[in-house]
Design a protein around this nucleic acid. Structure first.
Length: 244
DNA sequence: GGTAGCAGCCTCACCCGTTG
DNA sequence: CAACGGGTGAGGCTGCTACC
């Protein structure tokens, strides 16, 4: 069954004759006949009862009439939806993002994006780079905003912005007002690190180790907010957090 | 006047050989 | 090996004509 055959059938019913349907659809009259014959052959029933010049719907024809219009409308809606996807106005985008980028940067961008493309469905998954990047590799996510992936993953990486890494420490800590604060000054300090899946963690580790500072205190925290509160709560007497 | 059937034309997809 | 062009067949449409 083809949509044009249904359209022909609906037009015949609306217009009341094959000839008027042909004029309406800009077909030759014989094409209208062929469409109905094909439809009847495929469905195995007669749709119109012909008695001379009189023509009326059969019971099967009435049953088709009741459903054909809804079918046509759904098909039109489907075609429109496909066109919108092709034009980039609709569809479903699955986005991944790492923290704290997701919390600090994404919200206003996503709001503006949703206003510009109101029909686009957007799913945001927040996690660390170790979680998000494999999801992009496997196709579960369309793309992600993340720290640079490892080269063997085969993922393409495009820098969007650069994050400055900072040290957070209690206000009255001896190093709080030291200018400039060198990496070597952190020797012997307890450093709170983000979890190993965090993309920034490797950068911090590499930078400190190159200066002879052992960053491993045995304390890892997956939440930037928890780390911040731990620093505010003066976790021990020497509490540092390395964060962006 | 309206519908059905037939022959012919047109378009398009597919296949295959040729060419660079 | 890819691109191109010609041949072929299928499908769709039209115009004409017969039939009711």
């Amino acid at each position: 069954m083809e949509l044009r055959q249904l359209e022909t059938f609906l037009t015949i019913v609306r217009e009341g004759s094959f000839v008027k349907a042909a004029e309406k659809l800009q077909y030759a009259q014989s094409t209208i006949t062929i469409h109905i014959q094909q439809l009847e052959a495929e469905l195995g029933v007669k749709l119109f009862a012909r008695q001379g010049k009189q023509m009326q719907l059969t019971e099967a024809g009435k049953a088709l009439w009741e459903q054909a219009d809804a079918l046509r409308q759904r098909a039109v809606a489907l075609q429109q939806a496909m066109q919108e996807i092709i034009a980039g106005d609709a569809g479903h985008i699955r986005l991944g993002a790492i923290e704290p980028t997701a919390s600090l940067r994404l919200a206003p961008l996503l709001i503006a994006f949703s206003h510009e493309f109101p029909k686009l469905q957007l799913t945001l998954e927040v996690g660390n780079a170790a979680m998000v990047n494999p999801r992009v590799s496997s196709g579960d996510l369309d793309f992600a905003i993340s720290s640079p992936p490892e080269s063997h993953t085969g993922l393409a990486f495009e820098p969007l912005f650069f994050e400055a890494l900072s040290i957070l420490l209690p206000e009255h800590h001896p190093l709080a007002h030291k200018e400039p604060l060198e990496a070597a000054d952190l020797k012997g300090q307890r450093i709170l690190l983000t979890d190993r899946g965090c993309g920034y963690r490797a950068v911090v580790e590499k930078a400190l180790l190159s200066q002879g500072v052992n960053p491993f205190s045995g304390i890892e925290m997956g939440s930037i907010e928890v780390i911040k509160q731990a620093v505010q709560g003066k976790w021990g007497s020497r509490c540092f957090q390395v964060l962006q």
